[in-house]
Protein backbone atom coordinates (compact mmCIF):
# COMPACT_ATOMS: atom_id res chain seq x y z
CA UNK A 1 0.00 0.00 0.00
CA UNK A 2 1.48 3.35 -0.96
CA UNK A 3 1.42 6.21 1.48
CA UNK A 4 -1.54 8.26 0.15
CA UNK A 5 -3.75 5.17 0.24
CA UNK A 6 -2.45 4.18 3.66
CA UNK A 7 -3.14 7.69 4.91
CA UNK A 8 -6.63 7.74 3.47
CA UNK A 9 -7.62 4.28 4.71
CA UNK A 10 -5.81 3.76 7.96
CA UNK A 11 -4.18 6.90 9.38
CA UNK A 12 -6.43 9.80 8.52
CA UNK A 13 -9.24 9.08 10.97
CA UNK A 14 -7.05 8.42 14.06
CA UNK A 15 -4.81 11.39 13.19
CA UNK A 16 -7.85 13.62 12.99
CA UNK A 17 -9.19 12.27 16.27
CA UNK A 18 -5.91 12.88 18.09
CA UNK A 19 -5.53 16.38 16.67
CA UNK A 20 -9.16 17.11 17.53
CA UNK A 21 -8.54 16.15 21.16
CA UNK A 22 -5.33 18.20 21.35
CA UNK A 23 -6.92 21.19 19.61
CA UNK A 24 -10.07 21.11 21.75
CA UNK A 25 -8.28 20.71 25.08
CA UNK A 26 -5.08 22.76 24.57
CA UNK A 27 -6.10 25.04 21.70
CA UNK A 28 -9.43 25.58 23.44
CA UNK A 29 -7.62 26.56 26.64
CA UNK A 30 -5.43 29.12 24.87
CA UNK A 31 -8.41 30.52 23.00
CA UNK A 32 -10.35 31.01 26.24
CA UNK A 33 -7.29 32.35 28.11
CA UNK A 34 -6.61 34.97 25.41
CA UNK A 35 -10.30 35.91 25.33
CA UNK A 36 -10.29 36.27 29.14
CA UNK A 37 -7.23 38.55 29.00
CA UNK A 38 -8.70 40.74 26.27
CA UNK A 39 -12.07 40.92 28.07
CA UNK A 40 -10.27 41.98 31.27
CA UNK A 41 -8.42 44.75 29.43
CA UNK A 42 -11.52 45.79 27.49
CA UNK A 43 -13.75 46.00 30.57
CA UNK A 44 -11.16 48.01 32.50
CA UNK A 45 -10.87 50.42 29.56
CA UNK A 46 -14.65 50.81 29.66
CA UNK A 47 -14.28 52.09 33.20
CA UNK A 48 -14.65 49.00 35.39
CA UNK A 49 -12.17 48.77 38.28
CA UNK A 50 -9.24 46.73 37.00
CA UNK A 51 -9.33 44.03 39.66
CA UNK A 52 -13.08 43.63 39.07
CA UNK A 53 -12.54 43.30 35.32
CA UNK A 54 -9.91 40.58 35.84
CA UNK A 55 -12.02 38.63 38.35
CA UNK A 56 -15.25 38.68 36.35
CA UNK A 57 -13.56 37.73 33.05
CA UNK A 58 -11.69 34.87 34.70
CA UNK A 59 -14.89 33.53 36.32
CA UNK A 60 -16.69 33.52 32.98
CA UNK A 61 -13.61 32.05 31.29
CA UNK A 62 -14.36 28.56 32.59
CA UNK A 63 -17.81 28.57 30.97
CA UNK A 64 -16.32 29.93 27.74
CA UNK A 65 -13.74 27.12 27.79
CA UNK A 66 -16.48 24.56 28.44
CA UNK A 67 -18.48 25.72 25.41
CA UNK A 68 -15.36 25.80 23.22
CA UNK A 69 -14.36 22.23 24.18
CA UNK A 70 -17.88 20.89 23.52
CA UNK A 71 -17.97 22.71 20.19
CA UNK A 72 -14.56 21.27 19.31
CA UNK A 73 -15.97 17.76 19.61
CA UNK A 74 -19.36 18.48 18.03
CA UNK A 75 -18.12 20.38 14.93
CA UNK A 76 -17.71 17.99 11.99
CA UNK A 77 -15.77 20.27 9.59
CA UNK A 78 -12.16 19.72 10.59
CA UNK A 79 -10.83 22.82 8.82
CA UNK A 80 -13.04 25.03 10.88
CA UNK A 81 -11.65 23.45 14.07
CA UNK A 82 -8.08 24.20 12.98
CA UNK A 83 -9.07 27.75 12.12
CA UNK A 84 -10.76 28.48 15.45
CA UNK A 85 -8.65 26.42 17.83
CA UNK A 86 -5.19 26.89 16.33
CA UNK A 87 -5.06 30.04 14.24
CA UNK A 88 -7.35 32.21 16.36
CA UNK A 89 -5.37 31.71 19.64
CA UNK A 90 -2.11 32.43 17.81
CA UNK A 91 -3.55 35.61 16.32
CA UNK A 92 -5.01 36.72 19.66
CA UNK A 93 -1.80 35.98 21.56
CA UNK A 94 0.20 38.02 19.03
CA UNK A 95 -2.21 40.92 19.56
CA UNK A 96 -1.86 40.58 23.34
CA UNK A 97 1.95 40.57 23.15
CA UNK A 98 1.82 43.76 21.08
CA UNK A 99 -0.60 45.36 23.54
CA UNK A 100 1.64 44.46 26.51
CA UNK A 101 4.65 46.01 24.74
CA UNK A 102 2.71 49.22 24.08
CA UNK A 103 1.44 49.42 27.65
CA UNK A 104 4.90 48.73 29.11
CA UNK A 105 6.40 51.66 27.18
CA UNK A 106 4.27 54.09 29.18
CA UNK A 107 5.67 52.59 32.41
Amino acid sequence: MNFPALWQNRLRAPAQTISRVVLAVIGGYFLSATLVSLAALGLSMLGMARSEAVISSAMLGFLVYLVIVLWGFAERRFRRIVLVLLLAPIALQTTINMLIDTLKVSL
Binding site: S32, A33, T34, V36, S37, L38, A39, A40, L41, S44, A49, R50, S51, E52, A53, V54, I55, S57, A58, M59, G61, F62, I96, L99, I100, L103, K104, S106, L107
Partner: peptide, 28 residues
Protein backbone atom coordinates in the same frame (compact mmCIF):
# COMPACT_ATOMS: atom_id res chain seq x y z
CA UNK B 1 -8.12 29.17 41.55
CA UNK B 2 -9.06 31.44 38.64
CA UNK B 3 -5.83 33.40 39.11
CA UNK B 4 -3.85 30.15 38.75
CA UNK B 5 -5.77 28.95 35.71
CA UNK B 6 -6.03 32.33 33.96
CA UNK B 7 -2.91 34.19 35.15
CA UNK B 8 -2.61 36.14 31.90
CA UNK B 9 -5.67 38.27 32.54
CA UNK B 10 -3.95 40.21 35.35
CA UNK B 11 -0.70 40.30 33.34
CA UNK B 12 -2.47 42.13 30.51
CA UNK B 13 -4.87 44.33 32.50
CA UNK B 14 -2.01 45.42 34.81
CA UNK B 15 0.68 45.50 32.10
CA UNK B 16 1.44 49.15 32.86
CA UNK B 17 2.38 48.40 36.49
CA UNK B 18 5.73 47.10 37.68
CA UNK B 19 4.42 43.94 39.34
CA UNK B 20 1.13 43.08 37.59
CA UNK B 21 0.01 40.07 39.61
CA UNK B 22 1.10 41.49 43.01
CA UNK B 23 -0.73 44.74 42.25
CA UNK B 24 -3.81 42.77 41.19
CA UNK B 25 -3.87 40.76 44.43
CA UNK B 26 -3.36 43.88 46.55
CA UNK B 27 -6.18 45.72 44.75
CA UNK B 28 -8.67 42.86 44.67
Amino acid sequence: FSSIYFPNAAELAYADTRHPSTTFFAES
